[in-house]
């Protein structure tokens, strides 16, 4: 430029000022506000950790780790108290297991249908209905379980099953709570999975069809592997919702800390214990008070570990298309 430019360049202004004409305070303020919005959830998480840590440490100064992490007995409000958290962890696992048994296959199936098979018209009807299901309050699901599903389960229980599995469940059961919780989670799994599958480029589907793949092969061998990270994310979201769900189990699963994975028994979950203990007259500084925090910490840590495992799994197995 400089070599070619003639000495008297008339198109060039006398003075070139490239500094900012104003400090743009408004924009800086908005960026600061946006940062705070983004940082808010991180700050809240840190706050929760702090709120949990101190009472949890206090709990463990009174109850040994060995006593807490055992399956012996769970009766923190009794005299003498017992703190075998394995009992309510088992309760949570029990209900979660049956919920996922329903929600993961049904949710993934719904996602595959919506993403790969549904006509635009079917999609227009099904997707909003699915999303409405997501918005139903969990307390409504709880009563749906207790008053609608439980009687049906009790009526139709397959009594020919061997041993204790053949006994019809009582009013409160893991089966009823798990089933309804599964129904509650289907839309979450379906919706997040479908978004991930719909985001898979059409060119990959064309490639597969162009070789002579059937629709099912395109869906299962190309689209699902390519969307795996989103699908696993939906599963994790579903599991987290199941583990953290409180109202349904509180209403429909009962409150017996049974050490069982049988669906026809009443169980107490970690969340149901916390809700139950916190709604009663619970005095600050009592052992029951600290137990609530210890169980809360355990819930928090287990969800965290679950998330980390899933992130690692996704990194390992996902088929990145970018």
């Amino acid at each position: 430029m400089s070599t070619a430019a003639p000495p008297t360049d008339r198109t060039r202004p006398d003075q070139i000022d490239l500094t900012a004409s104003s400090p743009r305070w408004g924009e800086k303020a908005i960026v600061g506000w946006l940062f705070l919005c983004a940082a808010f959830s991180v700050l809240v998480t840190v706050g929760i950790v702090f709120a949990l840590v101190e009472p949890t440490l206090e709990f463990f100064s009174r109850v040994s780790l060995g006593e807490f992490f055992s399956f012996d007995e769970w009766a923190p409000t009794f005299q003498p108290p017992a703190f075998g958290v394995g009992r309510i962890v088992a309760g949570t696992l029990n209900v979660t297991f049956y919920a996922l048994l329903i929600a993961l296959p049904a949710g993934l199936g719904a996602a595959i249908y919506l993403s790969e098979y549904a006509s635009p018209r079917a999609k227009r009807i099904l997707k909003p209905v699915l999303e409405v299901l997501e918005g139903v309050p969990t307390v409504a699901y709880g009563f749906f379980a207790l008053t609608f599903i439980t009687p049906i389960i009790r009526e139709l229980w397959p009594t020919f099953l061997p041993g204790a599995l053949g006994d019809p469940p009582g009013i409160f059961s893991a089966a009823s709570a798990g089933l309804v919780m599964g129904i509650m989670i289907i839309p979450t799994v379906a919706s997040v999975s479908q978004d991930a599958m719909s985001a898979v480029p059409a060119s990959l589907r064309e490639a597969a069809y162009g070789i002579g793949s059937t629709r099912m092969q395109v869906a299962t061998k190309v689209v699902v592997p390519a969307a795996l990270s989103g699908i696993v994310a939906s599963f994790i979201l579903g599991i987290s919702r199941a583990v953290g769900e409180t109202m349904i189990v509180l209403i429909a699963a009962g409150a017996t800390p049974n050490l069982t994975l049988l669906p026809n028994e009443s169980v107490l979950t970690m969340t149901a214990f916390i809700a139950q203990a916190s709604t009663g007259d619970i005095a600050t500084g009592t052992i029951t008070y600290y137990t609530v925090f210890a169980v809360g910490s355990l819930l928090f840590v287990s969800t965290l570990v679950l998330n980390m495992i899933s992130i690692a799994l996704v990194r390992r197995y996902r088929e990145a298309y970018e």
Binding site: E206, A207, G210, I211, G212, A226
Partner: peptide
């Protein structure tokens, strides 16, 4: 599907499977 197994296709933008 049988047709496409005999008559294959290569597309405008390279689209390998991931």
């Amino acid at each position: 599907i049988e047709v496409r197994r005999r008559i294959g296709m290569v597309f405008q933008k390279p689209n390998p499977f991931p």
